[in-house]
Write a protein that binds this DNA or RNA. Structure first.
Length: 477
RNA sequence: GUCCCCAUCGUCUAGCGGUUAGGACACCGCCCUUUCACGGCGGUAACCGGGGUUCAAGUCCCCGUGGGGACGCCA
């Protein structure tokens, strides 16, 4: 059997983290078995579906690298097909017109709730033969309901949750077509999953309750039931379901915050699934090792600190070229233009010098500014702390020695720094910090010889000259 | 309220009848160190409660409790 999975979001918002995880699971399952992954946009609710959301979902999928073999398929393009199936169900006697008004239904539900019952349609029109009309003789508005079996159990053999048994008495006759004739969710999923020959339906467990209804419809249509896998929800830090209020931001926010798509995927994968003690998985390993059956049945809490840690692992180990690719967006975003050339270091070298000091691409981009752009002023706290009365003399001494360096490299720079320390009988602790502030404008950087090497001789000397001036002026009066 | 799902360190998890209950994040020490980091070493920390079943239960069963979900002419 060919494995065919799908991700079927409704375009009523961005692609959020929970959706991204079920998409990932679906995608992995298809890739693992050499099958197809289909993207279907469930936009039958025309009121709430927007093009903007469609774009956001596509952008998110693309950023995460979850490529699909078919789609995006829009349900609104398939209304004829749904009408056909609805007609078939009516003809078979498995669906019927219901003339109950919204008010009647509301009242029914209210009464049931008051009686501590589960609110559900009472089947009033189920066996109705007449066609009620208004005062002008026109038929009343009606919806189409599916005739759900009255007795018996529906058994879901869920790949994640195990066997779930629901009695048909818990179900009611759901609406499959609205007054305006448009089909509803439960009907469209069934038709689409069948038509698209989906073998494995992997989705959030908030759909478990819909599953028995869908199985009943599939059975009524005489088709085979696909395998189901219901993945648990992701909860926010407060233990509540992740919602917009609780930080359920769109996946693109994670790009903006400086995460690698691969890190987000890795984090999402490990949230609710594990393989021995492994934490970091390459794309290939994910595909190779993932098994839906091993997905944890319990909901899990999203933890940003762990995501950051995962991201750090990627920033530490990814090839500089690849980091540079992802970094570019942030450089642009932060208005920093990289000009590699005679007086400027290669971006890859800078990345290698800084990769252990940044948790996110945002930090990385911000931390490398001084290699490519002169600073106007010194970090206030840094200057205050490290520019002392003795500083001008120290910096001048360094400056004199640096000028003599013919081959500007880390070894030679380190040697001259040491010479200055020896000559002035000062420890590195007295010389280093001032030098660092002088050439970077900040109190943090990689080790000095590397930093100076990257900044280059020309600009290192210029900055030192400026710093001598600044520090001298500071203690002039 | 009714139905469904779930339950091991604060968090993510391993465990599938007999373990000193393992790993990771976070946190706390120590070490390394010119800064910021990285790294190394060590530590604190968990089987929701009660009944069973069994020689033996974190592991199986039942009942509670707690959390989540569903109950739309939303998906």
């Amino acid at each position: 059997m060919t494995v065919r999975t799908r991700f079927a979001p409704s375009p009523t918002g961005y692609l959020h983290i929970g959706g991204a995880r079920t998409a990932l699971y679906s995608w992995l399952h298809a890739r693992k078995h050499g099958g197809q992954f289909i993207l279907r946009i469930e936009d039958t609710d025309r009121e709430r579906s927007t093009q903007e959301s469609v774009d956001a979902i596509l952008e998110g999928m693309n950023w995460l690298g979850l490529d699909y073999d078919e789609g995006p398929i829009f349900q609104t393009d398939r209304f004829d097909r749904y009408a056909e199936v609805i007609e078939q169900l009516i003809e078979q006697g498995d669906a019927y017109k219901c003339y109950c008004t919204r008010d009647e239904l509301d009242e029914m539900r209210e009464t049931q709730r008051a009686n501590k019952e589960k609110p559900r349609y009472n089947g009033k029109c189920r066996d109705r033969k007449d066609i009620p009309t208004d005062e002008n003789g026109n038929p009343l508005d009606s919806v189409i309901r599916f005739k759900n079996p009255l007795e018996g159990d529906v058994v879901i053999d869920d790949m994640i949750k195990g066997e779930i048994i629901i009695n048909n008495r818990e179900l009611d006759d759901l609406i499959i077509a609205r007054t305006d004739g448009t089909p509803t969710y439960n009907l469209t999923v069934v038709v689409d999953d069948l038509d698209m020959e989906i073998s494995h339906v992997i989705r959030g467990d908030d759909h478990i309750n819909n599953t028995p209804r869908q199985i009943n419809m599939i059975t009524a249509l005489g088709k085979d039931v696909p395998k189901f896998a219901h993945a648990p929800m992701i909860l926010g830090d407060d233990g509540k379901r992740l919602s917009k209020r609780h930080g359920a931001v769109g996946v693109m926010q994670y790009r903006d915050d400086g995460y690698f798509p691969q890190a987000v995927l890795n984090y999402l994968l490990r949230l609710g699934w594990s393989h021995e003690d492994q934490e970091i998985f390459s794309r290939e390993e994910m595909i190779d090792l993932f098994k839906v059956e091993n997905v944890n049945g319990a909901a899990s809490t999203f933890n940003t600190k762990k995501l950051i840690w995962v991201n750090e692992q990627y920033i530490k180990t990814l090839p500089a070229d690849e980091i540079a690719q992802h970094l570019q967006w942030h450089l642009d975003n932060q208005g920093l233009t990289i000009v590699e050339g005679d007086d400027y270091p290669a971006l890859n070298d800078v990345i290698d010098a800084h990769r252990d000091r940044a948790k996110t691409l945002v930090e990385l981009a911000a931390g490398i500014r001084y290699y490519y752009q002169d600073f106007e002023s010194y970090d206030e706290n840094a200057a205050k702390k490290h520019f002392k009365t003795a500083t001008p003399a120290i910096l001048q001494n360094l400056l004199d020695k640096f000028r003599q360096i013919e081959a500007w490299n880390a070894d030679n720079i380190a040697a001259e720094i040491k010479n200055t320390c020896d000559e002035l009988a000062l420890g590195m602790g007295k010389v280093g910090p001032a030098l660092r502030v002088a050439v970077t404008g900040t109190a943090m950087s990689p080790s000095l010889e590397i930093t100076l090497d990257l900044i280059g001789k020309k600009r290192s000397l210029e900055r030192l000259e400026k710093a001598v001036e600044f520090a001298t002026a500071k203690y002039a009066d």
